[in-house]
Amino acid sequence: MTEQPTGGAPDGVAASAHDLVKVYGTEEAEVRALDGVTVDLMKGEFTAIMGPSGSGKSTLMHCLAALDTPTSGEAVVDGTSLGRLKDKALTNLRRDRIGFVFQAFNLVPTLTAKENILLPLDLAGKKPDPAWFDAVIDAIGLRPRLGHRPSEMSGGQQQRVACARALVSRPSIVFADEPTGNLDSTSSAEVLGFLRRSVDDFGQTVVMVTHDPVAASYSDRVLFLADGKVVDELREPHRDAILERMGALSDAATSKAG
């Protein structure tokens, strides 16, 4: 595996999964959350991963984001295979090359918005690039609230701060796990709009897990997972097309159960 150049190139692979298998439990209680997933996530693209509950979409993201270790197969982020890395190296990888946005509890409650945004850089002992920092802050539109703590901000504002934190260290890839799951539609639109712009304006790679077709419609590419496998894919998705695919997946599941 050779090191690939990082940054603004519009093509190339940001992260990839090769025959990824993740099994929980043993024997009878065995659950195959991922059942041989092979997929490339492209640089400079906004990818959405969709699927019904239990389809393995979150597990796929966790394995790619160095939060979970697969049972077999290989996960590669920014040219680095995760399988052989120790905890310390994984920690550094997460800190330096991956950005995270979670559904809830995204911010450290004791730190201000600004401190939260700079947390990964502080932990790495790096200074932020002032121009980049300003650009990100302006993009999330929260400059006046930088000195506030999470408890003094709305859910949408908190989530935008989380997005800024994910971007400020210029990671190779940003993983977002149901980032709008807890938000009303206006706040959702703000957050998703920001993620979209980060791809368009900054050339950021974003991977988002969601089961909301509206959220997925902001993306460039939608991967559909069912029963631990990639079953379908859409480019330049439209909300209705997504809904239709989801419906089909749901029907398939129902007929299988019946």
């Binding site: 905890d87 920690t91 997460r94 800190r95 995270f100 450290v108 990964p120 932990l123």
Partner: peptide, 14 residues
């Protein structure tokens, strides 16, 4: 959860 978040954004075990 906070510990998890800190670990996720790059706080090492040490």
């Amino acid at each position: 959860r906070e510990v998890g978040l800190l670990r996720a954004v790059g706080l090492s075990r040490r």
